[in-house]
């Protein structure tokens, strides 16, 4: 199949590359924009490792084709700390809410959306919201702790 020139806005920068229509957004971000913080874990939309933000909402990077995303604003983990997420990143470190770190970018982006949608979640609400993001290492508790901690700190501000 002919390659097409695809130009995406990723973290506010335009990235152009000639790619086949079949290239997923996740692969474009990794191999064309060379932003490797977005991880590929299952390529069928289950694990959540490739979660990015598309036009302000989270989406699976493996379930979108790059060519679909022309005209959309893509945000990845590399852009995360510049927004409101730095406190989440710090809380993940403090609570050791990551071990291998492979799920972490997707987990952070999901957690960030959770706190935008629901600034005062219960622990169970956090668990349910994040239940589309697989983590084999932590057992999830420290992740929940970190998110709850950030919610609490933001409320106190």
């Amino acid at each position: 199949m002919m390659k097409r020139l695809v130009t995406l806005s990723i973290n506010g920068e335009e990235v152009s590359a000639a790619v086949e229509p079949r290239m997923t957004l996740a692969d474009f971000i990794r191999s064309e924009a060379r932003l490797t913080g977005t991880h590929v874990g299952c390529e069928h939309g289950v694990c959540g490792a490739c979660t990015v933000r598309v036009d302000g909402r989270t989406a699976r990077g493996c379930l979108l084709f790059a060519i679909q995303c022309e005209g959309s604003e893509i945000e990845t983990i590399e852009n995360f700390g510049d927004g409101k997420g730095a406190d989440l990143q710090q809380a993940f470190v403090e609570h050791n809410a990551l071990q291998c770190g492979f799920c972490t970018p997707g987990m952070l982006i999901a957690a960030d959306e959770l706190l935008r949608d629901d600034p005062s979640p219960t622990r169970q609400a956090v668990r349910e919201y994040l239940s589309g993001n697989y983590c084999r290492c932590t057992g999830y508790q420290a992740i929940v702790d970190a998110v709850m901690d950030v919610a609490e700190r933001r409320r106190r501000k």
Binding site: G45, G48, T51, V54, R57, T58, A59, R60, L63, L64, A110, E113, L114, D117, Y129, S131, G132, N133
Partner: peptide, 9 residues
């Protein structure tokens, strides 16, 4: 239905 990132799309 699935999870938030799926429901968003």
């Amino acid at each position: 239905v699935a999870h938030p990132a799926i429901r968003n799309r």
